[in-house]
Simulated assay, not measured.
Amino acid sequence: MKIEKIYLSFLCVALLWLSACENDEYDGLTDPDPIPAAAITFPQAAEANGVARMEDNAYIIKQNSIGAGQISVQLKVPEGRTIQELTSVTGQRYRNGTPTPPNFSPTVPTAAASLAPNSVTRNTPGNLPTTLTGGPGNVVTYNISTANLPAVLSDAQLPTLAVGDVIRLFFRARVDNSQQEQRAIEVRVYITG
């Protein structure tokens, strides 16, 4: 009798454990929080202590893009992995006054006049070129010219890039020889000059 209870208890625990398992496979489109095969990170977001600067579930890069003439974002995967190409890049620009440290990235405004384009999420189709510099490789660079800002990042209310602007970028990449897209976490480039 006692052995049967132990056996039944073990069987119940095993069934609960098996029923709790989920299919975490990344489907490329509908999974809201995919777990990529190779994590895509942004080395420029690292603080002096090596820890990535993140706010609101986005990497934060502070950059003197106006002076440099371009917005430049490095994407990295672990050694031994390779970013083959960007399959989609979606961007949005907003201006929301001067942020108060330590929050470098102002909250995304809701007024259409402060956003270009007006609505973007991680599932929005790509609206920027997908050209890489230095790829394929485990570290590649994505550049946007500030002298010739893509039309999607400028409009009548935000015609030119200014200090305090934030560029939100969502990348989809093909890593290694897989045909499956991987989505990187959002990155925000905070324009400091």
Score class of each variant (00 low, 15 high):
2 K>I: 15
3 I>R: 05
4 E>R: 09
7 Y>L: 14
8 L>M: 13
8 L>W: 11
9 S>W: 14
10 F>D: 08
11 L>P: 00
12 C>A: 15
13 V>K: 05
14 A>C: 11
16 L>Q: 12
17 W>I: 02
19 S>A: 14
20 A>K: 02
22 E>G: 08
22 E>C: 07
22 E>R: 12
24 D>M: 12
24 D>W: 10
25 E>K: 13
26 Y>M: 04
29 L>R: 14
30 T>M: 10
30 T>R: 10
30 T>E: 09
30 T>C: 05
30 T>W: 08
34 P>F: 04
35 I>W: 12
37 A>I: 03
42 F>L: 02
42 F>A: 01
43 P>Y: 11
47 E>H: 08
48 A>H: 11
54 M>T: 15
55 E>R: 01
56 D>C: 05
58 A>C: 08
59 Y>A: 15
59 Y>N: 06
61 I>H: 09
63 Q>W: 09
68 A>C: 03
68 A>H: 05
69 G>A: 07
71 I>N: 03
71 I>S: 01
72 S>T: 15
74 Q>A: 15
75 L>E: 00
75 L>I: 00
76 K>N: 08
77 V>Y: 03
77 V>G: 04
80 G>F: 04
80 G>S: 06
80 G>W: 02
81 R>G: 00
82 T>A: 01
82 T>E: 06
82 T>N: 01
89 V>W: 01
92 Q>G: 02
97 G>D: 06
98 T>R: 15
99 P>Q: 07
101 P>T: 05
103 N>Q: 15
105 S>I: 01
105 S>C: 04
106 P>D: 09
107 T>S: 04
109 P>D: 12
111 A>W: 00
111 A>C: 00
111 A>P: 00
112 A>R: 12
112 A>T: 13
113 A>S: 13
118 N>D: 12
119 S>M: 11
125 P>E: 14
128 L>R: 06
128 L>M: 11
130 T>H: 01
132 L>A: 07
132 L>D: 03
133 T>C: 03
137 G>Y: 01
137 G>S: 12
138 N>R: 04
139 V>D: 04
141 T>E: 14
144 I>N: 05
145 S>D: 10
146 T>E: 09
148 N>Y: 09
149 L>N: 04
154 S>G: 04
155 D>T: 05
159 P>L: 10
160 T>R: 10
160 T>Y: 13
161 L>H: 10
161 L>K: 08
163 V>L: 07
164 G>Y: 09
166 V>S: 10
166 V>M: 06
167 I>K: 09
168 R>K: 05
169 L>T: 05
170 F>R: 05
170 F>P: 00
170 F>Y: 15
172 R>C: 00
172 R>F: 00
173 A>R: 00
174 R>H: 07
176 D>A: 03
176 D>Q: 08
180 Q>G: 08
181 E>T: 04
182 Q>Y: 06
182 Q>I: 03
182 Q>C: 01
182 Q>S: 10
183 R>K: 10
184 A>H: 02
187 V>A: 04
187 V>N: 05
187 V>G: 03
189 V>I: 12
191 I>L: 07
191 I>N: 04
192 T>D: 09
